[in-house]
């Protein structure tokens, strides 16, 4: 048996409690502080260069002149494809998990798979997307390749949040629907899903946020073209990738920070929306 030397008691337990609380508070404050500092840092350097022109003009000379219009459009398209593909699949999986199976080996496997997918670094998704969509399926660097890659990336988030939202709907709603002559599927579609909608929407919005801010997975799959995309098979550059390129290739610091400012504000708005919905949802059922 090894006995640890007892540390001399420095503090009365009651004082230790106070100290612990203070330390924890300081840590929380530091976290929030860092967040605010990042936002402040980016906005201070970038916001001054953001104007209507910046948002609506095409980038010229590699982005050192002009705006970021085509990258905004590119971001919308790539994110759009990702969400449009991931939502039905994710929702379907969530409905299956929450409504059609008992807890068992299968659900554990599916859930483990989804969790693992969530833990894969995004650059691996990028490589996978490049190998599979760009090369093997010959979609090339394109909105389609990028969007599909993002769909895989945000799938776990959408499955998890949707499943939780469905499970939070009181069992009695299902019973009532069945007792009124609804089939199980009608009960899900007409009663359970509407009740879970805010929670499901939260998951989708979080997915949008993740897609908008993603760089590594998209740069390998959608490429870096600054031209205005006209089809799903055109290459495009998202705002995140644009920021990355402007910085890494030292093209223009003001334009880089301006792009970052737009990105940060977009992400903030998306998170506020997700947070508000989530709040409304939890208040409704708890």
């Amino acid at each position: 048996m090894i006995t640890l030397p007892r540390l001399p008691r420095l503090l009365h337990p009651r004082h230790a409690q106070v100290v612990a609380k203070a330390v924890l508070w300081a840590m929380t404050l530091a976290t929030v502080g860092v967040l605010f500092y990042i936002i402040y840092f980016v906005l201070r350097r970038g916001l001054g260069h953001v104007g209507w022109d910046f948002l609506t003009e095409m980038p010229r000379r590699s982005g050192s002149v002009g705006g970021i219009f085509s990258t905004i459009v590119g971001t919308l398209y790539v994110t759009g494809v990702g969400v449009v593909v991931a939502t039905p699949i994710g929702l379907g999986a969530a409905i299956y998990l929450a409504e059609y199976t008992r807890e068992g080996r299968l659900t554990r496997i599916v859930r483990f798979g989804a969790e693992s997918l969530a833990g894969v670094p995004s650059i691996i998704f990028g490589l996978f997307g490049f190998a599979f969509f760009v090369t093997y399926l010959r979609f090339g660097w394109s909105i389609l390749s990028g969007g599909l890659t993002l769909a895989f990336m945000i799938l776990p988030t959408i499955i998890r949040t949707s499943e939780e939202a469905l499970r939070a709907v009181p069992q009695s709603y299902r019973e009532v629907a069945l007792s009124l002559g609804a089939s199980k599927w009608q009960a899900i579609v007409r009663v359970v899903m509407p009740a879970a909608a805010p929670g499901i929407l939260t998951g989708i919005i979080l997915g949008v946020g993740r897609s908008v801010s993603e760089t590594a997975a998209v740069i390998f799959t959608s490429g870096v073209s600054l031209k205005m995309p006209h089809s799903l098979f055109d290459s495009t550059r998202t705002m995140s990738v644009h920021f990355y390129t402007l910085t890494m290739e030292s093209i223009s610091e003001p334009k880089a920070y301006a792009t970052a400012a737009v990105l940060v504000i977009t992400i903030l708005l998306i998170n506020v929306a997700a947070y508000t919905l989530m709040n409304r949802f939890t208040r409704k059922f708890r």
Partner: peptide, 11 residues
């Protein structure tokens, strides 16, 4: 038809 013990209106 059935009426449950606790009132169960749908939202």
């Amino acid at each position: 038809g059935i009426v449950f013990a606790t009132p169960q209106p749908l939202p």
